[in-house]
Amino acid sequence: MTAVNRLTEEQIEKLAVEVRQFLIDHEMWQDVAIYFNGKCFTTYDKEAGKYYYNDPDHLIVVENKDPNDYFDYVAEEHVLSMGFEGPLYALINYPQGTGDYRKLYKFNQIFKNYGLYYELGDAWNLSCYYV
Rank of each mutant, 00 (worst) to 15 (best):
I34Y: 08
Y35G: 08
L120V: 06
I34C: 03
A33V: 07
T98I: 04
T42C: 08
E85Y: 14
I60P: 03
Q11C: 01
E119H: 12
L116E: 03
A33Y: 11
I92T: 05
S127H: 12
T8M: 07
C40F: 08
Y44T: 03
F22C: 00
V32D: 07
Y105R: 02
N113T: 00
K50P: 01
I34M: 05
E63M: 10
H78W: 08
C40E: 15
N5C: 03
S81C: 09
V79N: 01
K112Q: 05
H78R: 11
Y51H: 13
Y53L: 13
N93H: 07
Y101H: 14
D72F: 08
A123Q: 13
Y94K: 15
A33S: 15
F22M: 09
D45P: 00
G99I: 11
Y118V: 02
T2I: 08
N93V: 06
Q96S: 05
D25C: 02
G86K: 13
D72T: 14
E47Y: 12
K50E: 15
K46T: 14
D122I: 10
N113H: 01
V131C: 04
G86W: 08
E18I: 02
V17D: 00
K14P: 01
R102S: 04
L88A: 08
A75F: 12
G83I: 08
